[in-house]
Nucleic acid binder design. Structure first.
Length: 817
RNA sequence: GCCGAAGUGGCGGAACUGGCAGACGCGCACGACUCAAACUCGUGUUCCUUUGGAGUGUGGGUUCGAUUCCCACCUUCGGCACCA
């Protein structure tokens, strides 16, 4: 009989306080234990903890708690990615300062995060907008500059007209090239901006060999980096002796290059354009400039272009070929110029057809004749085919032709082997207020000069009119703008753009180690013990943004001698997303948002945690269902009444006792395996099975007290990572002095878990016709004999001799009649 | 178009390396308790034309045996896309 009822609100508040008082979740170096750094993506302090935060964080917490009970010294920190646009936008809308807004939100969210019952060590909290944090973000900027990994250049960059700032290429999404944050299609602007040389690590970023990351992420990053092998080939102009460099993946088709195409923005366009064509070229350039990149980069658009009037010499056969400009050639890939081989490239073919340019076939497969007429046929290196019309290479197989021709080009000094990446350098300048200032001073004499270390951080001034104008608001703050050159002391101005907030989050896992440390970005002693991150968890949406940036950062940090690891996170797991009850993405406008605070109030945090882990496979996510939460609610209530019951058996049944013990040990094994591989849903289901077995035992009152006690206490252990409050409360009510979260993870006994009889399925021609009870260790011969003598089987066989009998030990007997 | 993930009862989802499809839960139905309802408890719950048959998106295949492997499709979601 229960002496009390389960009252989550009461026990959750109580344990939060006790845990904090006792410092139960302080996480400190302990060399006597193996370490485990568990990290979950830090939230943006939007002001309200969304159910999505719960979905990301509470299973991560359960995993971290599980690792802790398994004997690891676990670090599981939390912080806030606190710079960024929403603060600024909210501030503009409500006329509060972004710092104030952010601070208040963090305050509120800390409370919400506490209610989750996570084991975060708040002593290690890091907030990226604190000067003590961004001091080191700025320091990293300088270090990257020293390493030649940060540079400034003038370029056509992506600009979000709604956010009023530039964006990195990674932050432009989708077919319509929209801003990752707000969804507005981006435009191009010509600006002088700071970049990080992510491309310096392009090759290394393609190597995932040392890390256990989801296939999905590896594929997305690989595609994003977009490596292609080929050759650079130099063409000379027929007239002026200019060199036009192109990148091609198919140097073996050079003899078929019958024209060249430059991007409209190509710097040599002016030089090759003849007087007669000047007007047409200028008009085309102007039109291309005006056109949005969405229109320009849609592949199904009909190709357009203009002849420049100029010619180039094909370096392999000396032919004069016309130079065109066309917007299907992109300035920011390769060299912004191509050799066009219309016979073997669909795009070049379409262009040649439209403008009546020469088409010369240079590869011929077996099933094609001259009668077939003009046709673009791309022969891959895997296919059969021979080179034709290709000088001394005519007649060689297309297989291996690329490397042969490349080697020859290199010999002749006409080209070289080359690898091109789709990856662009990371543009980090932002024309907004609420970010870390870039620690640079511009001096007429000395150019861009980094601010000396002892003057870091360059403080973000508070008294700024931060209306977004497309230019940094810091520009109009005289006190910030005007300074002196660190080299010569002359009057100088500061860089007024701020840094992309993805820069703050590229190294936060290091700051967590020692958020108050002031001798460097992190305390090397802490680093030596905790690094690298063992298990990272977070959403897939960061696959080609944060997860590329942080890998870049770690590689750069390694080359600076700050860390020894090549990769920031050894293992990664991506959870899915909680959808609304209507199976749609949650959004305020749809009105399908689930508020975790309300759920906690109604059901308690433990129930919300258990339901989150139960209702879907974590990596897939799925729709929320309000009624569904009743399952875990009933489950925890049952756990409560079972654990507080005075169990007094009326008699002791040996079989029932063995059955309960078997279930208990099977569930220990199952939950252990499930938590190991993030299968929280089946772990909860297994615990419900144990609950069902205990309910049954209580009703029958026929198992030994020992078996009962074992069942209850094991259940509390296994439940502790999932529902930390109720398991702690019941554990303490049962008279234990130390926290359940400090207990060792239970082990199971295979002997006890083993079934002693099994139900053997008997099939005839693959269809189940009978089920027989046999000893678990039955021999194949005995199983076959038992199956063949079963009355239902005898009847079905009707005296016929089976043609074949298959016995799967412990599972089934299949009789082929 | 290319790449990736997924399609299983009324619903969410289980099923380790090919071996009882539907664990666990929700919902529903009936029964008990109650003046009544809710709660709770018990029983049942893939479908059908039920001595049987069908069934894991569709159509084929391999196999004694396929949700699982192979081939060809369809649908949904995500990523990329004139990348030379």
């Amino acid at each position: 009989m229960s002496e009390s009822n389960y009252n989550p609100a009461e026990i959750e508040a109580k344990w939060q306080e006790i845990w904090e008082e006792q410092g139960l979740y302080r996480q400190e170096i302990d060399k006597s234990k193996p370490k485990h750094y568990a990290l979950t993506m830090l939230p943006y302090p939007s002001g309200d903890l969304h159910i999505g935060h719960w979905y990301a964080m509470t299973p991560s917490d359960a995993r971290a708690r599980f690792m802790r009970m398994k004997g690891y010294n676990v670090l599981f920190p939390m912080g806030f990615d606190a710079f960024g646009l929403p603060a600024e936008n909210a501030a503009i809308k409500r006329n509060i300062h972004p710092a104030k807004w952010t601070k208040a939100n963090i305050e509120r969210m800390r409370g919400q995060l506490r209610s989750m019952g996570t084991m975060f060590d708040w002593e290690r909290e890091a907030v990226t907008c604190d000067p003590s944090y961004y001091k080191w973000t700025q320091w990293f900027f300088k270090k990257l500059m020293e390493q030649g990994l940060a540079y400034r250049k003038h370029a056509a960059v992506d600009f979000c007209p709604n956010c009023n700032t530039t964006l990195a290429r990674e932050q432009v999404w989708g077919e319509d090239r929209h801003c990752e944050r707000c969804g507005t299609p981006v435009i191009k602007k010509h600006l002088e901006q700071w970049f990080f040389r992510t491309t310096a690590y392009a090759e290394e970023l393609l190597d995932f060999s040392g890390i256990d990351w989801p296939e999905r992420v590896k594929v997305m990053q690989t595609n994003w980096i977009g490596r292609s092998e080929g050759a650079n080939v130099v063409f000379e102009t027929a007239e002026g002796g200019h060199e036009i460099k192109v990148f091609t993946t198919r140097p073996d088709t050079l003899w078929g290059a019958t024209f060249m195409v430059l991007a409209p923005e190509h710097p040599l366009v002016g030089a090759v354009t003849t007087a007669e064509q000047e007007e047409a070229v200028a008009a085309y350039q102007a039109a291309a400039e005006r056109m949005s990149s969405i229109d320009r980069e849609s592949a199904d658009r009909e190709k357009t272009g203009v002849f420049t009037g100029g010619y180039a010499i094909n370096p392999v056969n000396g032919e004069q070929i016309p130079i065109w400009i066309a917007d299907y050639v992109l300035m920011d890939y390769g060299f912004g110029a191509i050799m066009a081989v219309p016979a073997h490239d669909e795009r070049d073919f379409a262009f040649a057809q439209k403008y009546d340019l020469d088409i010369v076939e240079v590869i011929r497969g077996s099933n094609r004749t001259d009668e077939d007429g003009p046709l673009a046929e791309a022969y891959t290196e895997k296919e059969e085919g021979v080179l034709i019309n290709s000088g001394q290479f005519s007649g060689i197989a297309v297989k291996g032709a690329v490397s042969k021709v490349t080697a020859w080009l290199a010999e002749q000094g006409k080209g070289e082997q080359s690898i091109n990446y789709r990856l662009r350098d990371w543009l980090i300048s932002r024309q907004r207020y609420w970010g870390s200032p870039i620690p640079i001073v511009y001096c007429d004499e000395h150019g861009a000069v980094p601010v000396p270390d002892d003057e870091l951080p360059v403080m973000l001034p508070e008294d700024v009119a931060f209306m977004p104008t497309g230019e940094s608001p810091l520009k109009s703050h005289e006190g910030f703008l005007n300074t002196t050159c660190p080299v010569c002391g002359a009057a100088a101005t500061r860089e007024t753009d701020t840094m992309d907030t993805f820069m703050c989050s590229s190294w936060y896992q290091y700051r967590y180690l020692s958020p108050d440390y002031d001798e460097g970005p992190f305390d090397p002693e802490e680093g030596a013990y905790w690094l690298p991150v063992d298990q990272y968890t977070g959403g897939i949406e960061h696959a080609t943004m944060h997860l590329i940036y942080t890998r870049f950062f770690t590689k750069a940090m390694r080359d600076m001698g700050l860390v020894t690891d090549d990769e920031p996170m050894k293992a990664l797991f991506n959870q899915g997303m909680v959808l609304g009850e209507d199976n749609e993405k949650m959004s305020k406008s749809r009105g399908n948002v689930i508020a975790p605070d309300d759920l906690v109030q109604e059901f308690g945090a433990d129930t919300v945690r258990a339901y989150i882990m139960f209702f879907a496979k974590w990596e897939l996510g799925g729709p929320w269902n309000y009624d569904g939460i009743k399952g875990p609610q009933r489950f925890l209530r049952d756990v409560w009444s079972l654990a507080t019951a005075d169990y007094a058996p009326e008699g002791e049944d040996e079989e029932a006792t063995a059955n309960l013990r078997r279930k208990t040990h099977q569930v220990i094994a199952k939950v252990t395996d499930d938590l190991e591989r993030f299968a929280f849903n089946t772990a909860v289901a297994a615990l419900m099975e144990l609950r069902n077995a205990l309910v049954e035992a209580e009703r029958a009152a026929n198992v030994s007290v020992g078996a009962w006690e074992e069942g209850i206490e094991m259940m509390l252990h296994l439940l502790a990572p999932i529902a930390p409050y109720i398991s702690e409360e019941l554990w303490s009510q049962r008279g234990h002095e130390t926290s359940i979260h400090e207990q060792a993870w239970p082990t199971w006994d295979e002997e006890i878990a083993k079934e002693d009889t099994i139900t053997l399925v008997v099939q005839v021609n693959g269809k189940v016709r009978a089920k027989i009870e046999v000893a678990a260790d039955v021999s194949n011969a005995d199983a076959e004999a038992a199956a063949l003598s079963d009355p239902a089987i005898v009847e079905r066989l009707a005296g016929k001799e089976p043609r074949k009998v298959i016995v799967v030990p412990g599972r089934l007997v299949n009789i082929v009649a």
